[in-house]
Design a protein around this nucleic acid. Structure first.
Lengths: 170, 170
DNA sequence: AACAGAACCGCAGAAGCTTCGGTATCGTGG
DNA sequence: CCACGATACCGAAGCTTCTGCGGTTCTGTT
């Protein structure tokens, strides 16, 4: 993968789907997807390139947007969030234009983990985590049912959530 | 948070929901959730403790299971996965006992990103990413519809997926 | 075969990591 | 009220890693 020009970052010169990745890039991504805190030295050894080369590759992947970020995976239970749920939400037909605003507001709530905009009967899904059932009920009542743009919701409790193979570098 | 005894790791002495976290721990988690590749030195400065203390805290959080891992967030489009979907799956009533096996097999597929076990009409949700619509159709046909344990599926294409506030450290 | 451009490597100064001994704080029991 | 142990914190220092740079190799073109 070519390094970006030395001058000011193009920021978005090419979209991630247009970037050409070779085997070394794939190996780097696979390792970092599994352990983002690995040292550059060990990463370089594992993928079989020099440390300096490896560092340049990782930077290029980061700047081109292929790597969107590095995140610690925190157990929600440790934060007092023992309950997770997936909430499917339908908007009022006339309110579709306000979809972005509705979601932006919801995204700022600490209970909300992920937002999925979907096709079909529902407009988007909210992955949320709360302390207990009454807290979840309150979230749905106060922030969803009260909003006139929202036509309906369907809440499904999550018993368990696991990251699968695709998350660990195909 | 107390460090585990020097001897062999208890591995699971206490569950994440029982761990007591103080403000420093919360600050550490907040920073690491946002940028897992930050250096220990800078992390220590941001949360206002010595590097040595910070390192001990992070290790304790990791070993107690509060931090489940560190992962690079890879744009699926860079891997040739331009299409994401959420698939709701119902099992045959008599096949509920085999739920674990069904999911374990599916989890190994590179297309599968997340598995959510849920309550309600559906038994679990699959968050998947594939190259194109025909690849998604093939996945559903070959791995879901063909399985006799699976009673039905509902596929919803994902237009966009964003991480919300709860992912960035309450 | 000569050349240009890109990618890679090793090196070395700079920066960061991690262990260790010492200190402060807190709670308990004499 | 003080001695004591346990706990957590800090600073320092040796060791490791990081990272920019110049030189080299590789690849594809003319």
């Amino acid at each position: 993968m070519p390094l970006p020009p030395a001058g000011a970052q193009p920021e978005r010169a090419l979209r991630p789907q247009d970037v050409r990745l070779d085997d070394t890039d794939h190996a780097i991504l696979r390792v970092l997807a599994d352990d983002a805190r690995i040292s550059n030295k060990e990463l370089a050894e594992r993928v079989g390139v020099a440390q300096s080369t490896c560092l340049a590759r990782v930077r290029a992947l980061r700047e081109s947007g292929v790597i969107r970020g590095y995140h610690a995976d925190i157990d929600p239970r440790a934060l007092g969030h023992d309950l997770e749920a997936m909430i499917a939400i339908r908007l009022q037909p006339h309110a579709r234009g306000a979809l972005r605003d509705v979601v932006a507001t919801l995204s700022r709530r600490p209970e909300v983990l992920d937002v999925y905009f979907v096709a079909g009967a529902n407009d988007f899904l909210l992955h949320v985590a709360t302390g207990r059932t009454d807290e979840l009920r309150r979230f749905v009542a106060d922030h969803l049912n009260r909003d006139p743009a929202i036509a309906g919701t369907e809440t499904a409790l999550i018993f368990e959530h696991t990251r699968a193979a695709g998350r660990r570098g195909s």
